[in-house]
Design a protein around this nucleic acid. Sequence first.
DNA 1: CTACGTATTAACTAGTTAGTTAAGTACAGC
DNA 2: GCTGTACTTAACTAACTAGTTAATACGTAG
Lengths: 224, 224
Amino acid sequence: MDPSSFDEPQPEAVTPTAERVRDADRTRADILDVATTEFSEQGYAGARVDEIAAKTRTTKRMIYYYFQSKENLYLAALERAYEMIRASEREVDVQGLGPREAIRRLAELTFDHHESHPHFIRLVTIENIHGAKHIAKSESLPGLADPVLEVLSEILRSGRAEGEFRDDVDALDVHMMISAFCVFRTANRHTFKAIFDRDMLDPRYRAHYRTMLGDMVLDYLTAR
Amino acid sequence: MDPSSFDEPQPEAVTPTAERVRDADRTRADILDVATTEFSEQGYAGARVDEIAAKTRTTKRMIYYYFQSKENLYLAALERAYEMIRASEREVDVQGLGPREAIRRLAELTFDHHESHPHFIRLVTIENIHGAKHIAKSESLPGLADPVLEVLSEILRSGRAEGEFRDDVDALDVHMMISAFCVFRTANRHTFKAIFDRDMLDPRYRAHYRTMLGDMVLDYLTAR
DNA sequence: CTACGTATTAACTAGTTAGTTAAGTACAGC
DNA sequence: GCTGTACTTAACTAACTAGTTAATACGTAG
């Protein structure tokens, strides 16, 4: 899995033109890209439909045409965030690795793609401010469960079979531990830097934090 | 340190009365309590000054009288959140404990008071959505650095002197690791439950997560 | 008791907001 | 070419929002 192949939404370059070309998919995607950025930067309540519209190549009317409401637009952005994260995690490949190597690989790849999608991390954080009430309305919610949980379960099972891993935690616990570290680094970045004068996303610290995460999970699982 | 002595802000019982009793401190505190709850539940952009006023025993005018603006009110709530967390951490007592016991104690006490102050955790999260731009205006910002960092440094130094702890991480790294776990449990609670059907704040899991945190930090620091 | 400053209540307001109405037009099918 | 529909632009709107103005009155000093 190559993190660089999963880019943040980038609004396409504006092409000034007087003619009106109809392209429903492009218009819809343009709105969704802009909205994702705007919601992740301003939050759900703080983002403005007028502002989103102004940053697209179309008008506010089309937002309602395609998405019906501000909430639906936000929900569409949120669903896409989850789907993209899940799609990338489906490509986690730990085949042929021992349990120790596999868990470290998985932790590091999780770290990588969290880092590649700060907008999506922030969207999840914002959705928690709203008590997950929007995602609760998503018809795709049942499919959002993390496929990496199955991979994790298999690694844990394998590690225990070899007498290497502790057996008082489940795959979801380990997933939580890894996610907490990766999410915190993005989600709490600004206050952390303001108070401690250390930007956790500064490239100078990247390798250190990446290793720290792998060590943390591995040391925990292999402790006696 | 007793977690139950640090309560969340609770608006005082309403006393219906036609007379107008002046008590500036009480009015100010009432506003701040209500605002803290409202901002932590709705976010900065989502909270409404009218709504905050309606939930106090006074009128919107007094919010502007005492706090001048919505932003100043939010900032006052935020500063108070930090000060309360810091005050409680100043009472962390690990005197007389060996490094291993001290680190576990500290991790667990951090866990406890994060759990006791969900509103404050959420306020910090919300402030990160806004890029820490409000707290940057706080005149008390220089005093918000975490006093527990000094305690942590001393524990690490002691653990290394006894040849028990690794030496490739600093006190801030360990603080980050502990905070990530404790913050995630509150800040991401809702989406986590929606997707994985596990409420991380459910009392049934409390002991498990508390032990998990202590083990995680200790196993990491003592790993060879 | 009076005066004054501070605290408080009540009503008002200009600008903003999510959403709506109306009109225009591209495009495919016939 | 005509028609109908989906896509698009432009303008409008009722309700909401943070903040303001005006009036009232409490509490204390003299």
